[in-house]
Amino acid sequence: MRDDDFLEGQLLEDAWLTLEQVAAACPVEPEWLLAHLDEGLFPQARSVAGVWRFSGAALVRARRMRRLERDFDAVPEMAALVADLLEEMDGLRARLRRAGLD
């Protein structure tokens, strides 16, 4: 295998994803994300000088909310509530793992 067969990845630090990247990776329409941001359904997203920055956690959240809306016709607030609960569960599971109890 030649050396140029390999791809060098660039590591994205937290809060590095743009709105367009999150939208494409979920995938959702950017308008969907903007509407949900306006409603305050993405507490992890930060707007710096009018530009939205997303963490990896926001990407997971957007994907979950979109699924709930698509699969169950959930209204956005309901999807956000379920996403909140799932995030809390993620946190508790992580604590169990850290304690070596999972």
């Binding site: 295998m1 990845g9 660039q10 994205l12 937290d14 990896g56 990407l59």
Partner: peptide
């Protein structure tokens, strides 16, 4: 794809190609 994963990657992090 053969991807070289950079040193120091953490869970949940995103690598952009």
């Amino acid at each position: 794809l053969n991807v070289r994963i950079p040193k120091g990657v953490a869970a949940g992090q995103v690598i952009r190609l």
